[in-house]
């Protein structure tokens, strides 16, 4: 599970480089997210634009990553591809996260 991270003044962008967050890598993803978000800005944008598929394990791991950051910090999601977006809609998790269609859109909105 490869994540790439970029930190700006007010926010950190974590981009998932793999095409899948599924049961085979959910734990690994959770651990990698923990090390990318344990310190740093309160606002983290998870860039999912390269992810074509998540299953319920992957969804659970993203929820766990947000919980792990604590209530005073925020995890926003950006660049959801069609099937990923569908999983968030069906489970109503799209009401729990701030979801942005694109990373650029998320940054434009969140930098203000």
């Amino acid at each position: 599970m490869e994540l790439s991270t970029k930190t700006e003044d007010q926010l950190r962008i974590v981009s998932v480089q793999d095409a899948r967050i599924d049961a085979a890598v959910a734990l690994e993803f959770k651990d990698a997210m923990r090390s990318e978000t344990d310190d740093g800005p309160d606002l983290v944008v998870l860039d999912l634009s390269k992810v074509e598929f998540i299953d319920s394990s992957g969804l659970g791991a993203i929820v766990a990553a947000m919980k792990n950051m604590g209530a005073d910090r925020k995890l926003a999601l950006a660049g959801l591809t069609p099937t990923v977006q569908r999983v968030f809609q069906l489970t109503r998790m799209d009401s729990v996260f701030s979801v942005f269609p694109t990373l650029d859109g998320a940054l434009a909105e969140l930098r203000n």
Partner: peptide, 18 residues
């Protein structure tokens, strides 16, 4: 149910629903 506090958000149980 996702209408809960952050700490109570479910991390599983979505599979059979889907």
């Amino acid at each position: 149910s996702v209408d809960v506090d952050l700490g109570d958000l479910p991390e599983g149980g979505f599979g059979w629903f889907l």
